[in-house]
Design a binder for these strands. Structure first.
Lengths: 212, 212
DNA sequence: CCACAGCCTGACCAACTGGTCAAGATTTTT
DNA sequence: AAAAATCTTGACCAGTTGGTCAGGCTGTGG
């Protein structure tokens, strides 16, 4: 009767369960923080008994670590648009669009990351010191090249990056505040478009960006 | 022998103890989040027995509520510079300076606020709907006037405000990440000055602000 | 000097937490 | 078909948490 799920090898089922748990965990951690989240609640959201959850992820900290790592990798990947760009208008414009889209579709991840960093990054400090540092240095070099080529004003690339991160992630981390100030309703398609346009307009004009 | 503290009426002592506890609580809440913070740890930081803490603040939630309220009021007060300004360069410039200074001197408060909003503002939702909404509408009117007067480009005032909040508070909420990317050291005086200048430069130029 | 109201605190408790485990169910391999 | 490996779960435990409370302490007004 029930053969809707065909190719179910033990490995497949395991992967599905782990993904289910990770999704539930991301949601619960983003809503309650690490300290406020409970394994019982994560299990309930995932629709599994708590003991089963511990079978796949022995400790709460280990589960949390995997959630944060996944978020960080997704976020890094989305930043590739930066590389294949000829100038700031194209590159930064696409970067802003990409990060705003993530903030709209997956605000939970951004919140977990923000929470982790705010609490002194007890779990992903090594990522900050290695991967993130390297990534940042690379993009700073790109921006400096654009400045040398006269494609934008001389601006401290580091603070420009912080501004991009802060602004785009704000729409995820503070979505509740933004919704409240929007009369309690989520931003509409048109409002999201206006937000993207506003951010791009102010920043690109702010750095005096010109077409490549 | 010990008469350094002279006028110690019971009311004065009470006020001092409450302030001491509130400061300790703000620190602990900012470091561990509401769920991760414990009354025992707050008591230790304040140097008081836990039972004494419960004498002044019967419940953890009540203590947390007062911490968040105090932060919100301080933050609102610091925004007065907005009002007495003739144009965007003066007004927004002073606002950015003020908020950057708060981020530098009191990052804990900003973190507690961010945490509260990220978790759907369970405690200060009414403030968002009343005080913050009114404040925001008022500043939007000011910005719209500046636009009408031709002192700046037509920009969506709401998204401009979000950008200001996001960027300035980022230096508090993500100070750990910023420090790590700064080689593990806090920003120096000169670096803070550069940060302020960069933010003001990009935003003020981004909105095409001209002197009043 | 006393009495009284407010302040302080060690000891205690019920509720909840992350984590364990043994016994069974299920699937894969032989 | 039977043994081996993997998965599932209810019951359980030790540690921690927010919160209580009785009894002692302290300063103040009479």
């Amino acid at each position: 009767m029930n053969d809707e799920t065909r190719t179910n090898s033990r490995k497949d089922r395991r992967r599905e369960s782990e993904k289910l748990i990770l999704q539930a965990a991301e949601k619960v951690f983003s809503e309650a923080g690490f300290g406020g989240a409970t394994m019982q609640l994560i299990a309930d959201v995932a629709g599994l008994p708590k003991a089963n959850l511990h079978y796949y992820f022995p400790t709460k900290e280990g589960l949390y670590r995997q959630v944060v790592q996944k978020i960080f990798l997704d976020w890094l990947k989305a930043a590739d648009v930066f590389d294949n760009a000829d100038g700031p208008i194209e590159g930064l414009g696409a970067y802003i669009d990409a990060k705003m889209e993530i903030s709209r579709r997956h605000p939970e991840g951004s919140k977990v990351w923000a929470s982790e960093v705010m609490h002194q990054a007890p779990v992903i400090q090594d990522y900050l010191e290695t991967t993130l540092t390297e990534w940042t240095d690379g993009r700073i070099a790109v921006i400096e090249r654009w400045i040398e080529q006269g494609l934008m004003d001389p601006v401290d690339p580091r603070h420009l990056l912080y501004m991009l991160w802060a602004t785009t992630q704000h729409y995820a981390d503070f979505n509740h505040q933004i919704e409240t100030l929007n009369g309690g309703a989520p931003l509409s398609d048109a409002q999201w478009e206006a937000a993207k346009q506003s951010v791009k307009q102010i920043i690109l004009r702010g750095i005096g960006a010109t077409p490549a």
